[in-house]
């Protein structure tokens, strides 16, 4: 039975892979079917996952096991129910309260961490002595890091018209931005090709056994 299910799974997987690839030719019913199955399965998977991984162990099991000892859990449970009120137009306003609490809590937790990791530590990492590096290439790299950061930030300074002396760093900033966009695009291409290789490896290897 296990062997049959494995084979059935591989054929099913091959069918959906080819159906999705068929969009390269043109939009067609097979592609639409696969897309909708994917969306439906994903939604169902997450629903089941939330029930079994979050709600049962963190709420229901604890309340059933020791109700009086876990009374505090009734607060998130009530907030969850209030969130569901959104589906009914007459009670929609109730859902604003849990949403407000959620956004406020997330902002509070994240703000300090983002401030430290994405601003303070990043700025500190740029405040270096560029000439203290061991090799010439590292010195050049450090100089590029400092110049690129300053010019890149300056490009987004719109309080003064970028002409005359202000034009040069702004132009340089564009160049640094373009190089970084180019590198990002290159990495994106590499990632997409990797995904394609993965799928082709599955089709030619696991499914058709043409490659090992």
């Amino acid at each position: 039975m296990t062997a049959f299910m494995t084979t059935f799974g591989i054929w099913l997987s091959a069918f959906f892979t080819i159906s999705i690839f068929s969009f390269l030719y043109k939009d067609n019913p097979l592609y639409k079917f696969s897309e909708q199955v994917f969306v439906g399965l994903s939604a169902a998977y997450w629903l089941v996952n939330i029930i079994y991984s979050i709600m049962i162990p963190n709420l229901f099991s604890k309340l059933i096991g020791d109700f009086s000892g876990n009374l505090i859990l009734l607060i998130p449970a009530a907030l969850g129910v209030m969130m569901l009120m959104r589906v009914h137009p007459a009670t929609q306003w109730i859902s604003r309260y849990p949403i407000a609490i959620m956004i406020g809590t997330t902002a509070g937790i994240s703000m300090l961490r983002y401030m430290k990791s994405d601003i303070l530590n990043q700025v500190t990492a740029t405040m270096i002595n560029p000439f203290a590096a061991e090799s010439t290439s590292a010195v050049i790299g450090n100089l590029l890091l400092i110049i690129g950061t300053l010019c890149g930030v300056f490009f987004f300074y719109f309080s003064k018209k970028q002409e005359g002396i202000y034009k040069a760093p702004s132009k340089l900033g564009i160049w640094f931005l373009m190089v970084s966009f180019g590198a990002t695009f290159g990495y994106t291409v590499m990632a997409r090709i990797s995904l394609l290789i993965g799928r082709l490896e599955f089709l030619l290897g696991d499914w058709l056994h043409l490659i090992k």
Binding site: S117, N121, Q122, T124, A125, I128, Y187, T188, S194, I197
Partner: peptide, 26 residues
């Protein structure tokens, strides 16, 4: 993934926020 790699490279810095990074298949 290679797509996310450029977004993480700035964390490999003097502050050692990241000790190196493996970006993509390469």
């Amino acid at each position: 993934t290679a797509i996310s790699a450029p977004g993480f490279f700035p964390y490999v810095n003097e502050q050692r926020q990241l000790h190196g990074l493996l970006g993509g298949l390469k």
